[in-house]
């Protein structure tokens, strides 16, 4: 019961209230760059979700049981980024060998993920927020979901925007940013206090 409440708290918190893209500004480059087509959004989003869950698990273990144990916290950034880069490589190789169809779909997005702020961001946030292992994994997964969610909405809107009559200077990226702003406004209106109903008294 406790775990379920915690799961709900983190999920709703990361997807709707502190959305990674729209309120924490993590992973904006792919959000603007890749969100033109729905297919590529699904590929990118799923790849990010996969890597984020895996990396928040691995980085948490490494931080807790290696870095903190030997008082090497200052090597955090170097370790995290190397772990993420290695993980992305590993996933790429494994996918290529085991699931070629999935690799064909996700492959081109995988190299982009190493430099996606959301992946390193979630690892850092897990430590900053004092999460435990369960929380970190849920946070990583739901962070990926929130990224996919925001990208999905954005892509559907942008596909429609192609056919609308926009002032010329606003065509392309500027109108995408304005749209993102309106979406962020909707997410911003969520009362963050709502999460406190999940915290057991």
């Amino acid at each position: 019961m406790d775990l379920l409440l915690r799961f709900l708290e983190i999920s709703i918190g990361t997807i709707f209230i502190n959305n990674f893209v729209l309120s924490k500004f993590l992973g904006l480059c792919p959000f603007i760059g890749v969100s033109k087509k729905l297919d590529s959004v699904l590929g990118m989003g799923l790849a990010v979700m996969f890597v984020m869950t895996l990396s928040s698990f691995v980085t948490f273990i490494i931080y807790k049981y290696v870095l903190e144990k030997f008082a090497l916290e200052y090597l955090r950034i170097v370790t995290f980024i190397l772990v993420i880069a290695a993980l992305v490589q590993l996933v790429e190789i494994i996918l290529k060998k085991i699931m070629p169809p999935l690799y064909d779909a996700l492959g081109i997005y995988l190299p982009l993920i190493t430099t996606n702020c959301a992946v390193l961001g979630v690892a850092e946030l897990n430590i900053n927020l004092g999460y435990n292992l369960f929380d970190s994994i849920v946070h990583g997964f739901m962070g990926g979901v929130s990224f996919l969610f925001a990208m999905f909405i954005m892509a559907t809107i942008r596909e429609k925007l192609e056919f609308s009559d926009i002032p010329k200077p606003f065509k392309g990226v500027p109108i995408a940013f304005i749209t993102a702003g309106l979406m962020a406004l909707a997410f911003f209106a969520a009362d963050k206090n709502i999460l406190s109903i999940f915290v057991q008294k």
Binding site: F170, G172, P174, A176, I178, A180, A184, L185, F187
Partner: peptide
């Protein structure tokens, strides 16, 4: 105040990019 919050950032950069495009 909305300019100082998250949505404002998107609006401001959108407008700046539009001006640059112009």
């Amino acid at each position: 105040f909305v300019l100082a919050m998250a949505p404002g950032a998107f609006f401001v950069i959108g407008l700046i990019l539009a001006v640059i495009n112009y």
